[in-house]
Design a protein around this nucleic acid. Sequence first.
DNA 1: GCCGTTTTCGGCCCGACTGTTTTCAGTCG
Length: 574
Amino acid sequence: MNNTDVADALSEIAELLELKDESSFRIRAYENASKAVSNLNEDVQALIERDELTSVKGIGKSIAERVEDLVAQGHTAYLDDLRAEFPAGVRELMRIPGVGPSLARRAYQELGVLNIEQLRAAAESGALAELPRFGEKSAENVIRALDRVRKRESRISLGKAMPVVEDLIAVLQECDAFQDLTAAGSLRRWAPTIGDIDLMATSSDPARAMEAFVGGPQVRQVLGQGLTKSSILTDNGLQVDLRIVEAEAFGSLVQHFTGSRDHNIELREYALARGLSLNEYGITSTETREIQAFSDEVSFYRALGLDYIPPELREAGGEIEAAGNGSLPTLVTVEDIRGDLHMHSDWSDGAASIDEMIQAAVDRGYEYVALTDHSTTIGFGNGLSAEQLVEQGKLLEEVRKAHPEIKILTGTELEIKRDGSLDFPDEVLASLDWVIASVHSGFNQTEEEMTRRVLMAIENPHVDAIGHPTGRLIGRREPYALDLEAVFRAAAKNHTALEINSFPDRLDLADRHARRARELGVMLTINTDAHAPVNFENIRYGVAMARRAWAEPSNVLNTRSFDELRKWLSRAAP
DNA sequence: GCCGTTTTCGGCCCGACTGTTTTCAGTCG
């Protein structure tokens, strides 16, 4: 079992303990241990071999034994026994919003419900409403929740949500009843997917502000309207909540609703150890019961003895400790990006001419840009042959004369073929300024095959970077099987950069992978993979992933000046 | 089941809302 398997097993134990109505503290212990394992930077096996498992915070003697079982035997009797008590379908019931462990357990034990279909039947037949402490309303809520699940109202991508919210905020700001107005929640943390949107505001005239909100142009349906909270559904099915609060408490409120849940839990534990209790209204001394309100987040964190923590870091990944000892990173920003090293023109599958793409890069104020059209064997048939690449290189000489304000690198997005060989021979690659190599086919290969394939590309001295290294398409395609730890180590050793692809569907490397790569000394590059001028706008999503990976400008290749970039490219072979 | 700037025992994040109740458990964010 690898770390992910162990973390999943611990998390399953926690869920089954919930079903058993075990002590909530024991449940949390397993949840915490699951998180601790998935955040490990090395194989849990190695920790066991060094006998250091219990030195991991959140793993004590008991859980260490279960983990050792899991790693050594692939299972643990403790989990096996729990599974025997509750069929898998019962655990699935808890995935339904509004259905928790209590309802799932009672539906199973008192009505024999084994899966979601049977729960619906029990709710519709009235059997559920018959149970003590349940009623008509409970049954109706279950049916409504099941309908919503059936309609698959799942999370939407950051790239879809962000423009909608920005438009909405721009419209609301035209109404002078709003003072402060900001998004909170997962959107403010730039999480890759978003559930619903929380807007926070202060207002001189809440009634008028709420009128403006529920009467906006893209409102499909008003779900609720009050003076402190209203909810709407937008045209594209996004639920947006607006909360209006007193200006004095705005800071702690925004902090509270920005989350993440895990960050807030850790922050409250940290505060409690110092005699302070936190809620959305401020900080309360547990001794004097006096509450202090905060109009901004900086002073809120400051009052806890912490540096301001950027929202992208609020994921319970060590940010509180770092904020306490002054070691938070200086995160990379969009302004730090000096060029884009991955873009396409209509020579391959882009929608715009080379000139249009270069002009768009100039308009963004970039110092340099790399043209990286696809190579021959890209599946859809319009990759460039070596001859076409030479021809394109000659054309670029002309383009450079027309655009002296930007440096243009001649490049390719090179196919890594199924056997790990590359589309162009070394002498062709050697003539290029920039080579980014990517996988676009054979996603079903085994982890061994795929890892060998990617490592071969990394080890080629002409390959400068690997594009969208895991191939994931959020919500549509899982990442292919790949030993990322081996990839990161090879990339660091061979001086090969790894891309954070800014396309909202990709965001690949993912934040936690990029963080691990950076820790192992891998150089990152944040690119848009632009296929049209408008795609350059996506750079902010890639930068956000880098920030969530705790990346500083020095960790990102394309924050360097053109001269520094060239210096990096002329690195000595390892 | 874990953990320690008050602790090796006695704590463990906080509040809002809902539905069922008549004082509170369950669920959510």
